[in-house]
Simulated scan of single mutants.
Amino acid sequence: MALLRGRGVAAVNYPTGMNLGGDPTQALVFSSPSGNFMLSLSSVDLGQGMKSITAQICAETLGVPTERVTVDTADSDTGPHCMGTFASRGTHRAGNAVIAAAREARQVMLEVAAEILEVDAGDLETDGSGDVRVAGAPSRSVTISEIARVAHFEQGRSISGRGIFLVPRSYPDAATGAMKPATCYAHACTVAEVEVDDETGEVAVLALRNVYEVGRALNPRMVEQQLVGGAWMGVGHALYETTEPYYPARDHAATDFTQYLMPGTGDLAETDVIVLERPAPDGPYGGKGPGEMCANAPIPAIANAIFDAVGARVDSMPFTPEKVLRAILAIRG
């Protein structure tokens, strides 16, 4: 019996969204009479931080503090259209739609402020803290709350905006079938270090070293949390999680997480995450879609590390002790 160590590396690139009829998403932004803003989306927050990041994008575009923006994801009956929260498209598609809607609302806001201050709207700027001021003359300013009040009750105007993002559709070449399935790609590389028990086939992940290129980290702390969690989701796919032998029959399927194998806190190994930023020209403030990609690279990296440790290739997930042991016995005759 021996505990054998191995190291494996894997690199992936991942498309943001897809080419599906343009893959559109819409957004609506409007102000209350008090100068707070409501952002309406049908892009669902699955726990990945959709509400936080779209509120930031909206606030940045409007030029107001983030806490003045409330995000309502409603549902597909009452909200503006969205293709869905999948394919790592949420931040990219919804973010671009939010920018378009917020720009339209911002223009109305500046036009109302221009009448109050008796200047041209093109001479105004927002200070990010809740005021609109004359560029070069910060003492001449008006609060966004006052602008909203005047717009609603004196000028009869709605400070609102509509936005949609539609990817230019790529049609297959008739002769070759070539097409452009995505407009930007995120990238990742993982180095996994494992220990394999050659008597039982058990695999322990000792360390994960991850590098992710995400376009631009719009919320760096939230990106880091997503990347670490996603990497360990990949470990779950690689070593633990499966629907077999129950799928498609569910007669003896797991009923809760005490019966469904997945890594727990005691299984988490040393994990490093390095974030590289290469802003996407068509991304919201350069952002891409790293979501699902987080889990991709660790899986082949672990498979390669097992091969490096014992010289046996396991090519079906999950890499259970039984599969690893059978592979070891096969190469040893």
Rank of each mutant, 00 (worst) to 15 (best):
237 H>Y: 14
301 A>D: 07
246 Y>T: 12
115 E>L: 11
85 T>K: 01
87 A>R: 15
170 S>G: 08
327 A>I: 11
153 F>L: 10
235 V>T: 09
110 L>A: 02
117 L>R: 01
96 N>I: 08
325 L>S: 05
175 A>G: 05
100 A>M: 06
172 P>D: 08
282 D>K: 04
76 S>P: 00
26 Q>S: 13
30 F>A: 03
63 G>W: 05
13 N>P: 00
138 P>R: 02
180 K>Y: 03
45 D>L: 07
122 G>K: 11
235 V>P: 03
152 H>S: 04
326 R>H: 07
91 T>E: 10
295 A>F: 03
176 T>Y: 08
329 L>E: 14
150 V>I: 14
285 Y>Q: 06
303 A>H: 01
275 V>E: 10
242 T>P: 00
315 D>E: 09
20 L>T: 08
169 R>L: 06
88 S>H: 09
172 P>R: 09
301 A>K: 00
192 A>T: 09
58 C>A: 15
233 M>T: 09
199 E>A: 14
132 V>K: 02
249 A>N: 12
323 K>I: 07
304 N>K: 00
7 R>H: 02
198 D>R: 01
294 C>G: 12
82 C>V: 07
55 A>C: 06
228 V>E: 12
54 T>A: 05
159 I>W: 05
134 V>K: 08
36 N>E: 14
274 I>N: 01
29 V>F: 02
217 A>S: 13
300 P>S: 12
161 G>P: 00
215 G>K: 03
122 G>R: 11
239 L>V: 04
239 L>A: 02
236 G>D: 05
106 R>F: 06
164 I>V: 15
186 A>G: 13
87 A>V: 12
238 A>L: 00
332 R>K: 14
320 T>L: 00
61 T>C: 05
46 L>Q: 12
39 L>W: 06
9 V>E: 14
332 R>L: 02
306 I>G: 01
3 L>H: 06
48 Q>G: 13
279 P>Q: 13
52 S>N: 12
178 A>G: 03
61 T>V: 10
146 E>A: 15
175 A>E: 15
297 A>L: 04
10 A>S: 13
303 A>F: 01
164 I>A: 15
